[in-house]
Design a protein around this nucleic acid. Structure first.
Lengths: 187, 187
DNA sequence: CGTGCACTTGATTGAAGTCAAGCGCTGTGG
DNA sequence: CCACAGCGCTTGACTTCAATCAAGTGCACG
């Protein structure tokens, strides 16, 4: 829980009482490798935090498995469209390593945000951070070549490349496994 | 101001006192066609609302003029990266038609959000809406062909196609003017 | 010790970008 | 009032990046 607390504190500080109440709303699971966090057919109403381990959010688009996000230790993740809209994306989440994961339900988060201005602020900052990431990623997809996107990932998060299989990295980067393989071999 | 008030109310209602204070923080400009709203060299610290008219946010990327967003009557717009990060995007905004535009400064918005839980909530909902849009747009860029993106714009906002020049629409869709022209001619 | 999964390598295709030329308004100056 | 300059858009030829299809290779584990 301490990792989660300090990750939250980095985004926006909470007063001790609010923090206590807020932490109570989180549930925690300990999961082995290759284990589902959210079954594929369920709509995900949780924001997750991964204490330790690795997880992957994905969905099926035109019959293909697309990796939406890869999260390693001490990162938050969620399916944005599923969480905020309760709509189309039949999202799945599964672990890639033995992992400890916490999550807070949409309803709990919203009722806490309603009660506590501080939680509302925290949520706003989290969403803002997501929005900025989303913009950066869009820019990357729109203007960079596959090579540049790979280089960016390598610079920004070499851990992902070390710990996650190339199949998932490729779909996370929005390219095919073959293209990624060619990039890595240096053409 | 009424258009702005009701647009805000649709996102999240404010109590009368908060609303009054909040509205005071907005400034309004009446501008002719093809007039700058933000000079190109300035970092934009405003969220804008366009009461009536049309405007375009853009930036120069690799020597090319890229349309980030096209806003018509009763829409909010901002440069996400510029506003929230105060960083790289040397963004410009200019009118495409005679327009009435309001804006609120970052500092004013943040201090109001700090004072009023309701404003914080409103801001959170605005950012969330932006985030969802950003995801939809990313999905569109990543998985749809130029043709499909044009069709989507035509379905979602035919007004834009009627009122904005093809050069801007093309860069908004992330394609070249030539490709857009070929799409419109039906191959 | 093989069967399969993770990845590589090769050949071909396709969508959209680039470069280049041309068309048709519209508006301004001679 | 016409002429032509320039902008907004179209059309054509060619190139390029990455997808697709199709065999492999090699290692992991059962």
């Amino acid at each position: 829980m301490d990792l989660l607390k300090s990750a939250l504190a980095k985004i926006s500080p909470l007063s001790p009482e609010t923090e206590t109440a807020f932490m109570d709303a989180w549930k925690t699971w300990e999961l082995p490798k290759d284990h589902p966090v959210v079954r594929e057919s369920t709509i995900s109403d949780y924001i997750y935090f991964i204490h330790k381990g690795a997880a992957r959010t994905y969905y099926i688009k035109n019959g293909k498995d697309i990796t939406e996000w890869l999260a390693l230790d001490q990162q938050f993740f969620l399916s944005i469209t599923s969480f905020f809209q309760r709509s189309p994306s039949r999202l799945g989440v599964h672990t890639l390593e033995p992992s400890v994961i916490s999550g807070i339900h949409y309803n709990d988060l919203m009722s806490m945000a309603d009660k506590h201005h501080e939680v509302e602020r925290l949520l706003r900052k989290m969403v803002t951070g997501s929005l900025i990431l989303s913009q950066v990623r869009m820019d990357s997809i729109q203007f960079e070549t596959a090579q540049q996107r790979y280089d960016r990932l390598l610079a920004y998060s070499p851990e992902i490349i070390r710990r996650v299989s190339l199949t998932y990295i490729a779909s996370f980067l929005g390219i095919t496994l073959e293209t990624l393989s060619r990039i890595r071999s240096g053409k």
